[in-house]
């Protein structure tokens, strides 16, 4: 089986099987455009820790990728999150944000949707104040602005 070398932002080379990383639209595109074998693919935006985690996810879902169309992909992200996935995605906010960003960069739609959905479930049904705590967002609103907002939402 063909092996591919990936160079991460912290200068770690990770070797992985070719078909495993094909879930990434970005890498798939890169490999199609360049023909050289044994080349090292640089991923300057991805840390090795995150890449390892993503490969772990890809390994688990390995046989589900085969021959799915874009529409089926969209169907797949709906419905209940599987126990394995929910365990996988049970990470701190910083890691979750990083997973979202890297999944977006690598164009792994299913992982991206899984992570976005998880982030959404964390804040849905919460109050503004709770959302600030969960997402670590500073309140930059003045009293008068908050008052106007309350009036707007009535």
């Amino acid at each position: 089986m063909a092996v591919i070398k990936l160079l991460t932002s912290d200068n770690v080379i990770i070797e992985t099987e070719m078909d495993l990383i094909m879930c990434s639209g970005t890498i798939k595109g890169m490999l199609e455009s360049c023909s050289g074998d044994d080349e090292i693919v640089p991923l300057p935006k991805v840390r090795s820790a995150i890449l390892t985690k993503i490969l772990q996810w890809a390994q688990f879902h390995r046989y589900e990728f085969a021959d799915t169309t874009a529409e089926e992909e969209a169907e797949n992200v709906c419905g209940v999150i599987s126990p394995w996935d929910s365990d996988f995605i049970n990470v701190d906010m910083s890691t979750l944000v990083e997973l979202i960003e890297v999944a977006n960069f690598l164009n792994i739609q299913r992982l991206l949707q899984l992570a976005c959905k998880t982030a959404a479930n964390m804040i849905a049904g919460k109050t503004s104040e709770d959302m600030r705590k969960i997402l670590n967002i500073k309140n930059d609103l003045t009293f008068s602005e908050e008052a106007v907002m309350r009036k707007e939402s009535k």
Binding site: Q113, A119, A120, I123, N139, E146, S153
Partner: peptide, 24 residues
């Protein structure tokens, strides 16, 4: 994309309004 999941097919506009009141 995250907000589309927050609102979701159940139209949870209340959560969206709460989110809008978090900051500018």
């Amino acid at each position: 994309n995250i907000l589309r999941w927050v609102v979701s097919s159940q139209l949870d506009m209340h959560s969206l309004e709460q989110f809008a009141a978090v900051c500018k």
